[in-house]
Each structure stands twice: as structure tokens, then as C-alpha cells.
Amino acid sequence: MASILSFLNQAVDSIISSGSGLNTGCKLVLSCAGESVTFPVSPPSFKVSNAYNNSTINVNSLGDINMLGKRGLTTIKFSSFFPAQAYDDIVNTTPDSPYSYVEKINSFAQKGQPCKLAI
């Protein structure tokens, strides 16, 4: 499972980071409760991580034993910026104010509902 996620991570990373400009045709859309934010600038890269809640216990006369745990949450990390003016490499032709993006993302976090990230 980890090798498939690693492959997908590398494939999407190469698609996003290829080309001379920032906009390579990829769009990142964060949606929550019927509202959405399309990031105006594609991030140059991102990282997907999966947590596995394994633990190690020590048993007398056997030593350390790895106890397999359940899979934890998947996390994704990326960085981008919200431009204050229009550039050639922007995904949206008419970007909103940088502060409006931040306000909308903060409102998603406070809603207490699951969000969806589409790439």
C-alpha cells in the first residue's frame, strides 16, 4: 500500500513541478459544506504521509515484539501563496484578495465538517 501511495505522490509531484511556469494545468480545490476555494497558484510539490499506529512491547524471554496497529490519518503537506495581483501563471484568471482565501479556509476549519482536497 505504501509503495502505491509513494508512486502516486511522485507522479503527481512530477506533473505539478514540470514546465517552466507555476501553472501546469493542475488545480487544487479545497471544498467543505458546499463551498470551495481554488488555490490560485499550484504548489511546486506536496507530500502525502500515512500513519500506522504500530507499537513495540518487550516480552520476557522473547525480547521486543512489534505489535501491528490500525492505520492512522493520512496527511498532506504543501505550500503555496495567494497573490495580491494577477500574474500569467495563475490558475484563476481573476484571483480574490489574499485575505479572502485565508478567511474562507479558516471558516472551513471552524465548521467541524470534513473537507475534500481535489487535485
Rank of each mutant, 00 (worst) to 15 (best):
M1P: 13
S3T: 11
S3M: 04
I4W: 06
L5T: 12
L5A: 12
S6P: 00
F7C: 08
L8E: 08
L8W: 07
N9P: 05
A11V: 12
V12Q: 03
V12C: 05
S14R: 07
S14P: 00
S14I: 05
S14Y: 00
I15C: 07
S17M: 05
S17E: 11
S18Y: 02
G19P: 06
G19F: 02
G19M: 04
S20Y: 06
G21F: 05
G21C: 06
G21N: 10
L22H: 03
L22R: 06
N23S: 13
N23C: 08
G25R: 02
V29S: 08
V29N: 06
V29G: 04
C32H: 02
E35Y: 02
S36K: 10
S36F: 05
S36Y: 04
T38K: 00
T38Y: 00
T38R: 01
T38W: 00
F39H: 01
P40C: 03
V41G: 04
V41C: 07
P43V: 09
P44L: 04
S45H: 06
S45R: 08
S45V: 07
F46C: 12
A51S: 14
Y52H: 10
Y52R: 11
N53I: 10
N54T: 15
S55T: 15
S55R: 14
T56A: 15
I57S: 14
I57V: 15
I57F: 09
V59Y: 08
V59L: 15
V59C: 12
V59D: 08
N60I: 14
N60P: 15
N60F: 13
N60R: 09
L62H: 10
G63C: 08
G63T: 12
G63M: 07
D64M: 10
D64A: 15
I65E: 14
I65P: 11
N66W: 05
N66G: 13
N66T: 15
M67A: 14
L68I: 15
L68W: 09
G69A: 13
K70G: 12
K70H: 11
L73F: 10
T74Y: 01
I76A: 12
I76H: 04
F78W: 08
S79C: 11
F81V: 07
F82G: 00
P83H: 04
P83T: 07
P83D: 03
Y87N: 11
D89N: 14
V91G: 04
T94A: 05
T94I: 05
T94Q: 02
D96W: 01
Y99Q: 10
S100M: 02
Y101S: 06
E103L: 05
I105A: 03
I105D: 01
S107D: 14
A109Q: 07
Q110K: 14
Q110Y: 06
Q110W: 01
K111V: 07
Q113G: 04
C115E: 01
L117C: 09
A118P: 00
I119F: 13
